[in-house]
Design a protein around this nucleic acid. Structure first.
Lengths: 213, 213
DNA sequence: TGACCGTTGTGGACAGTGTACACATCGATG
DNA sequence: CATCGATGTGTACACTGTCCACAACGGTCA
């Protein structure tokens, strides 16, 4: 029925940017189907290249998955930034700082709902704090989701809303709450609830974080 | 090197409880390796049966995964109940209700840390609210994790700590926070932090929930 | 008692996957 | 222009999920 992704029989022997093409293909597969749908051979097919060519750029299927996962984190960052610009500062530092943190949460949840496959892929692979801010995980704005939460929390401290003593590692708490909600929405018990219900739960969760941080 | 799980060449043609054996084998594979490590053929091998025999009990590999996932939810419930009995009521209804909710959270996080493979498996498969309390997801105590959070929240209302108006769907908020932390601990940025650090984050998260609910 | 039939397990086959190894083709660099 | 490292190809293998036809059982009913 529909043409496959440009087999486009390239004319040169070299591909030019095979690594990039493979990651892009991986992202497309992950979009519908999540991390399990990322299959190495299919990625090479879409890139118009033989299966083994992938091994010049990735050690493993898992290495490809890692790269795709990092890219998905970047998309998450993009969605958060989009929400941030949708809620520009008003001049009231307290309200603005609060809004900034909310925007981060809203963007995060929005991404989970709009792109469940990519969201799942972003977290399908073990990670740790040292890699939390590598540039591969950054969005077009150059910042990673982790940095974006951190910045919002810093604003809260600057505005005097959050006591400095509670700032340390507060990322973990805020992130955990929002991340958990994201997961529950896409394949936990909240799945299938209507949008209004989810919006409402999101708002309440953000209230909880604001109040409880 | 090590003997495989009892090939135990059975003498009868019928297995007796193949379905159960397959789920058990699946759990064992999930324990080390998570959901991806659940492979149908290997499960039949461990059960001492031909690969196709599995199809008399499960439509699919995915159906097996579902069954294993449900079992993992049951183990989660068990771990929570264990934490509940480790913190028996003292007589003060307010403190007891608070402790009950904390125990649920502590058990949940403890399970994630002790059995990351099973924890991941429990949530590796789409679910929804209607199936949240099916008996397959219950632990030995007969209650599902979802019911256990709910009961804790009810206690908070009874003790007058949580306004009844905020009770509805509060499961989602509490669950989201704790679930998110669990995920971050096993393969998110909190991974690899030392135990004391994680304990501390857990305590702070539970404070946040208590304060913010 | 024995014929029957649904349930459970078997055997063989197939397409698809990840990956290893040897080989081919290129572009930059001397 | 010869050389060499980097990139892509071809062939092969073990393994997976799953389909199909067949085999062995055990309860049911004459």
């Amino acid at each position: 029925m529909s043409e496959q992704r440009e087999p486009a029989a390239r004319t040169t022997y070299r591909h030019g940017d095979l690594r990039g093409a493979l990651v892009e293909a991986g992202v497309e597969m992950a979009r519908e189907g999540g991390p399990r749908a990322i299959v190495l051979r299919e990625a090479t097919r879409r890139a118009g290249v033989s299966p083994n060519a992938a091994y010049r750029h990735f050690e493993d299927r898992l290495a490809l998955l890692h790269a795709v996962s990092d890219a998905c984190l970047g998309f998450t960052a993009d969605r958060i930034e989009q929400e941030l610009t949708a809620h520009p500062p008003t001049g009231d530092p307290v309200a603005d700082a609060r809004m900034q943190l909310r925007a981060v949460g809203l963007g995060y949840i929005a991404f989970a709902r709009e792109e469940p496959g990519l969201f799942r892929t972003a977290f399908s692979v073990p990670d740790d704090l040292r890699r939390a801010n590598v540039p591969e995980k950054a969005g077009r704005g150059g910042r990673t989701p982790f940095e974006l939460v951190g910045a919002a929390l810093d604003s809260l401290v600057d505005a005097g809303v959050l006591p400095a003593a509670r700032r340390e590692n507060a990322e973990f708490l805020a992130w955990a709450a929002v991340h958990g909600l994201g997961m529950l929405v896409i394949d936990g018990p909240l799945r299938g609830l209507d949008d209004r219900m989810i919006d409402h739960s999101t708002a309440r969760l953000l209230d909880m974080v604001e109040r409880g941080l």
